[in-house]
Nucleic acid binder design. Sequence first.
DNA 1: GACACCATATATCAAACTGATACTATACAT
DNA 2: ATGTATAGTATCAGTTTGATATATGGTGTC
Lengths: 185, 185
Amino acid sequence: MDVKTVCLGMLTDGEASGYDLKKHFESSFGHFFSAGYGSIYPALASLAEKNFVSCECVPQEGKPDRKVYRITEKGREKLQAELAKPNPSHRVRSEFLATMCFAHLMEPEQLRTVLENRIAEIETYEEMFDEFEATCMKSTPHGMGFTVGMGRAVMTAMKNYIEAHGDQLIEQTEVVEPLRKSVAS
Amino acid sequence: MDVKTVCLGMLTDGEASGYDLKKHFESSFGHFFSAGYGSIYPALASLAEKNFVSCECVPQEGKPDRKVYRITEKGREKLQAELAKPNPSHRVRSEFLATMCFAHLMEPEQLRTVLENRIAEIETYEEMFDEFEATCMKSTPHGMGFTVGMGRAVMTAMKNYIEAHGDQLIEQTEVVEPLRKSVAS
DNA sequence: GACACCATATATCAAACTGATACTATACAT
DNA sequence: ATGTATAGTATCAGTTTGATATATGGTGTC
């Protein structure tokens, strides 16, 4: 289940261009699977080469040709095979938590800023989820609703945890501060 | 804050070899920042080249030389600068959630298996957190405890969400099953 | 005794992904 | 007039992933 497969899955919902898929990645998929043009265009080219998708060039005036992709029967079979994998991964890459590991090497104000910014970003995601539930919830497969609910549950848990333990972490950082300063200067 | 920086941070805790660092990545850091030899060794080489770490070759019998790395004063400054970044990222790459988006294209038993396996993996993490709290909690900086608590909070939220909504998702999949079959066969 | 597997330890490689940038054109706002 | 947004495709250097190679000794098991 790489970018190729996710593109294939998105195309089960109807034809789309690379640009269209990018928007899907930014909106609904963004919080658990992101991809940029640098992955999407090569992915579509590779899928087309293997006949998992077909490609139609639609000329446009003043803009590059729009390349419209459609999933083929062979592509559907490929997707089924990918979905049959019993242990899909779920990985986190968190510079935030890595930073927190070294909180004792930071200035308390720096730490507070990082924690506040993290909460702000979580709230942005929560608004995104609200909007999704208000507008797309009915028109979309049930699985999408599941992922949005999961995203919300996880974000809320993170926010609550920061609000419950963030101040304590900052205080502990303040306590060891004199040591750090003597080392640094 | 890439693998290089995290290695640098780990080295503030004392000298280590690439192999040692890999074990750190597997144990305490594993749930939010993973790295394999393919990233660690080039990272250390790059850090050494820039004099952020020093390297001492310790010959051993019957084994390859052990290369022991230590952070330098220049490395500490570099780390401080990295930690000062106010918006460290927190990204999820979830083949699991991507799979869930296409739940309506799956067999209900497949879906059930995926959900069960996810819960099993979460429980493995929870055991890892228990063990960490029982053994390493006192000897480790406060920030580590924060990340473990956060990890636990997030994992628990995921598990609860699956337990609360998983069956419903499977049922919804069963409902549309006849449609899917007629397309597939 | 043989065979498998794990720990120690480094290293490399193809494939994949990231994030930025380039190019073109319209439109709307400052 | 300048900046930003939308619509579109595309490439590229740097990074990361996951597997594999190499070498040896210990431990477990049939």
